[in-house]
Design a protein around this nucleic acid. Structure first.
Lengths: 114, 114
DNA sequence: CTGTATCCCCGTAGATACTG
DNA sequence: CAGTATCTACGGGGATACAG
């Protein structure tokens, strides 16, 4: 969970990366977007993630203040996840990362002059 | 190295995160910035990283087209690292991440209305 | 339906010593 | 100075089975 105490308490970027620097968290943020999604919907849309890992990631994101978990006491149970303001603020940054990847995905650095 | 084949070849964000989603790469990008830094200077500025790991990360970043490695055939040897255009394009995004962290580092999601 | 409980693998990264 | 070469440890992530 705590990737590295040193990281968490030193540079701000380290803290940021420990909040979203896992394999799945950025993707979960992108998938939830501005909607509310049930656990099962999330699992379907990210169909390569196991349920255990999805649960783990969501729990961590919840305690990092990225997502809200809303549980309905019904049968069958229903749980809806949505982004907090903090999580929503991350969206445009993730879009920038996607654009960056799209722009440079075939980039080959020709020996740059100095 | 290849974190996960599925990730690398599916969603663009997955590819982006595999290029900078490691523990040290974002920090290395921020430290190099628009300068050229020698290996030893990097090691000093990120003083908690071991030399082996620093080398590994730099090699991967080189093959991902993020950094340029310029070797001078001198004695004692000198090697200078700098960001490519691709790496430089990452800088503003990382700054946004820092701002995001700074803004929300004490954020506590009050039960948001729906 | 929404999770837990286990168990296990493998990769990342750390420590240390050595080299051209 | 700028790395390699080993060896080791840890823990994230995956598979599977079970539970409320």
């Amino acid at each position: 969970m705590v990737k590295n105490e040193l990281m968490k308490y030193s540079c701000p970027l380290g803290k940021a990366m420990s909040a979203l620097g896992s394999k799945w968290k950025p993707i979960i943020v992108l998938v939830i977007k501005d909607r509310k999604l049930r656990f099962g919907e999330l699992a379907v849309r990210i169909n390569v993630i196991s349920r255990k890992v999805l649960t783990d990631q969501l729990r961590e994101m919840e305690s990092d203040g990225l997502v809200i978990r809303q549980e309905f006491k019904e049968l069958p149970p229903r749980v809806e996840y949505s982004l907090t303001e903090k999580g929503l603020a991350l969206l445009p940054i993730l879009y920038l990362l996607e654009e960056w990847e799209a722009k440079y995905h075939d980039y080959n650095p020709e020996k740059e002059k100095n």
